[in-house]
Design a protein around this nucleic acid. Structure first.
Lengths: 112, 112
DNA sequence: ACAATGTGCTTTGTAATACAAAGTATATTG
DNA sequence: CAATATACTTTGTATTACAAAGCACATTGT
């Protein structure tokens, strides 16, 4: 019952965080999973969670990709980076999340 | 596209806010809708959003109800209040929301 | 008198998303 | 040579916010 509500809390914000991390540094999916699990206490995602989000963000034009062929590897890696539209979306959405978070905090921190 | 992400942001927290408001004062559904729309900027809910949440919370034993027959009215009103279990759930869940929110803030406020 | 609005509760259907689980393919380590 | 790590992909499930509509009664306005 309690794992479920955390799952609900995350809805939407994962996109935001992923956009943020990728706006700082181009990364490929597997790298991003490791980076997020390292940087965050609360967001420990698995690949099956991340990749569908990446595909969605790309479909919406918020991210662009390029395949790179590393010397040490037969299969190429798919690098993701944030488009202008993605950056704008990220900033706008974060502003809205903040407004919501302030509302929540104000109501929840109110004396009994 | 932007209305959608706000909808996602709300997932789970509506329960929290409803529990909080009802822990301060017993209310019936219609009253709660008005109260929430008054107290909050970001959470403007309609009845079709609220009542299913109330039923869920009651099913889970987080709230209890009583019908009251007002003199000025043929139909009774259904008053909701928070159970001990509901209060505990609210506090625990809010603590988890806060932890998540801090994570989000830390990551999102990080310099470009 | 009667239409419109307000109060109060309920049900049905839709879109979206986090996540687990499993699968594919190659490389590296013990 | 088996086990583990890297890297990407797909399928199915459970939840939830919300719109929209409906039902029943009361109170307005004209």
């Amino acid at each position: 019952m309690n794992e479920n509500i955390i799952r609900q809390f995350k809805k939407g914000v994962l996109e935001l965080i992923i956009l943020k991390l990728l706006s700082k540094k181009e990364m490929y999916g597997y790298e991003l999973v490791a980076e997020l699990n390292r940087q965050s206490n609360a967001f420990h995602i698995k690949e099956g969670t991340l990749y569908p989000i990446l595909y969605r963000l790309e479909d919406d034009g918020l991210m662009k990709t390029r395949w790179e062929q590393p010397a040490s590897r037969v299969q190429p890696k798919k690098y993701y980076s944030v488009t202008d539209k993605g950056g704008q979306f990220m900033r706008e959405s974060y502003a809205q999340w903040k407004a919501l978070a302030e509302d929540i905090t104000r109501i929840m921190e109110d004396a009994i």
